[in-house]
Nucleic acid binder design. Structure first.
Lengths: 197, 197
DNA sequence: GTCTATACCCGGATAGAC
DNA sequence: GTCTATCCGGGTATAGAC
């Protein structure tokens, strides 16, 4: 049986999970310690016993969310299929499109971006994501699946941007349709780079 | 000489401009009436004389920002050149990339999205933008500049998403580089749809 | 580890004088 | 139109009992 390396108390655990949810729904500025405590079913003293304050708790929450996001992405990147198939699987996998990206939304939070500790996991997540996608695309080129004219690093940035921007369009429209269109569009453009013909 | 149709007092004007700046920098939740007043050099009473409260002021600010955004985009869309040239001009025009999109960032503000009045201008802006870009792309197809295989509506969503997502990547990295990569990538993919060869 | 009490400032707004 | 006074609740935290 699997035993987690980091043992945290149940209360600490619930506090982190509540914070993750609230950061996703309302952002850092819009999330109060009181709201976190209430959702976690924990008292004031309990929270300040386990964490030094709001930034400390947010750090734990953001780190876990970032790690989860990388793990889920790797499920598609490391899966079977051609480069284009794996990228398609990634972009089309089930998502809470209308809730947006729990990491991407933090870039709009001035207090998160102003704190190097909170900012770091956000930065690292997107650096990793672009790099990993670039690897997948480079594999596709190396295997002759994709045109050698394709710059993997540049195309990777485009794919990630479509995803993040797709969330923005979906939230603005209160509909998943523009997200799906944006994804369809970039996949169509990439398919035109396919040498499979 | 040009005379604006809507005459507003100097104080009202400064309040709206301060609100526009703060909404851009800190979002709706992160912007307090007091901060608006201080930046505008106006007192409490003055603000509540001209506006009924924070939502009313935010509505004026958001409407103006949305209108400005459409106007600036139309400068490139309605300009000279092929469809691809106009889209390139739009995506590469000078921008405060690290500040992000003043309209797009509002989609992350739960209190804005929850208020139909505040939400409407945000929604309309992106509907307009996607529609206008689709027109430009459709012209390109009709003129034989672009492949008939290109779906203008779908590609338009992709282009807008790249822009919005590019802002996210730039803010995460604290660098304009990923924004520029994402833009280069989508322009390269669109160029491959060009029939100019 | 968790609870309650307390503190202090800020957010958002109203009231009424000038 | 603008100013000051005032209000009430919430945000964020500390202190100390249990």
């Amino acid at each position: 049986m699997y035993t987690p390396l980091m043992i945290t108390s149940d209360t600490s655990e619930r506090l982190i999970e509540s914070t993750r949810e609230l950061l996703w729904e309302r952002g850092y500025v819009g999330t109060s310690p009181k709201a976190i405590q209430q959702r976690a079913g924990a008292g004031q003293g309990s929270m300040y016993h386990h964490f030094s304050g709001k930034p400390d708790l947010a750090l734990a929450a953001i780190r876990r969310t970032a790690e989860e996001m990388r793990g889920k992405a790797e499920e598609q990147f490391g899966g079977p299929g051609t480069a284009l198939e794996r990228i398609t699987a990634y972009l089309r996998r089930e998502r809470d499109v209308l809730k947006g990206c729990p990491v991407g939304r933090l870039t709009q939070d001035p207090d998160v971006m102003a704190d190097p500790a909170l900012r770091a996991p956000v930065d690292e997540t997107f650096v990793w994501l672009r790099g990993r996608l670039a690897e997948v695309l480079a594999e596709g080129v190396a295997r002759g699946e994709l045109s050698a004219a394709l710059d993997p690093g540049v195309a990777a940035a485009t794919v990630v941007a479509v995803l993040q921007g797709g969330y923005v369009l979906a939230r603005a429209a209160d509909s998943t349709a523009p997200f799906e269109q944006a994804v369809d569009g970039v996949l169509g453009l990439l398919a035109a780079q396919s040498t499979a013909s």
